[in-house]
Design a protein around this nucleic acid. Sequence first.
DNA 1: TCATTTTCTATAGTGACTAGAGATTGGCCA
DNA 2: TGGCCAATCTCTAGTCACTATAGAAAATGA
Lengths: 137, 137
Amino acid sequence: MLTIGDLSRKTGVKIPTIRYYEQMGLLDAAERSEGNQRRYAAPERERLSFIKHARELGLTIEAIRELIDLSAHPERPCEEADRIAAEQLTAVREKIEKLRRLEKELKRIATRCAGDQIKDCYVIRALAHHDMCESDH
Amino acid sequence: MLTIGDLSRKTGVKIPTIRYYEQMGLLDAAERSEGNQRRYAAPERERLSFIKHARELGLTIEAIRELIDLSAHPERPCEEADRIAAEQLTAVREKIEKLRRLEKELKRIATRCAGDQIKDCYVIRALAHHDMCESDH
DNA sequence: TCATTTTCTATAGTGACTAGAGATTGGCCA
DNA sequence: TGGCCAATCTCTAGTCACTATAGAAAATGA
Ligand SMILES: [Zn+2]
Ligand SMILES: [Zn+2]
Ligand SMILES: [Zn+2]
Ligand SMILES: [Zn+2]
C-alpha cells in the first residue's frame, strides 16, 4: 500500500491536489491506516494517472468526472466519451484562434514603438484605441 | 455626467466590473451625486476604454495598473510600457504553443475511436496512457 | 525515547470577475 | 406632491482548479 506521499511521487500529482480530487469525487474516499492516514493500491494509482493525463489535456474536473462515470459501465456505447473528447478539441481550437488574433495585434503593438517617452509611446496609444487595431479580437 | 449605467452601455463593460475596477484601483474613486451614486465624465470613460482594450488583449489587472501609473508620467522613458507589451506577446505565444501540442494529441484521440462500447473506447484508453501520445504536452 | 518527517483537517487565498440580497436614490407621470 | 419602478448602492459569496498555511496527530529512524 502506498502512502499519499508515495502516490504523489509516483504520479507527479501534489499531495493537496490528490486530497482535492478526493473531495471533488474524482477519487473514491481512500482506505485508511489505523492512524487515519490514506493508503492507496494500484487501481487508485491508475485512476489518478488518468485524471492527471486528462487534466494535462485540458479537460475540466466535470468532464473527467463524466468520463470516470462512463468507465464504470464498460458495455454501454461510448458516444458520450467521444463527444467529450471532440468538444475539448473544439474548445482548444477556439482558444488557439482567439490567441492567434491577439498575437497579431500584440506583435504590432509590441514592436512598433519608436518614441522614447511615455507621451509618444505607441504601446500606450494602441491600447487606448482599438481603432488602431487591424481586426477584431 | 454619466451614470454607471450610461458608462456601461457606452463602453460595453458591465456595471459590477466597473465597480470592481474601481476597487482594484484601476479607476479612481468616482465622483458622487447627492444621493451617493457614481458619476463619470469623459476622462474616466477613456480610461475605462483603455482598461477594456488592454483586458481584451489579455493583459492582467496588475500589468494594466502599471501602465496607468506610467501614463501619469508622460516625460519618462517608455521602456517599461514596451516591456509589458513584449512580455504579453511572449506569454500569448507560449500559450499558443502549449495549445497546439494539446490540439495535436486531442485530434488523434477524438477522431480515432472505432469501438462502440466503453470498454473498447479509444478516448478512454488514450486518456489513461500518456505513452500512446506522440509527444509531450 | 526522542527528533524529524509525514500526514491529518480546516480555512483562506489566487484572478477576474459574476450573482444575489436588501436598502436607497432617480426620474417620470398624474 | 405622491407614487411607482428602474437604477444604483454596499456587502457577501460563488466560480475554477488548485495552493498555502496553521496546528495537531501519526509514522519513521537512531
Ligand atoms: Zn513605447
Ligand atoms: Zn484592438
Ligand atoms: Zn469511443
Ligand atoms: Zn499524453
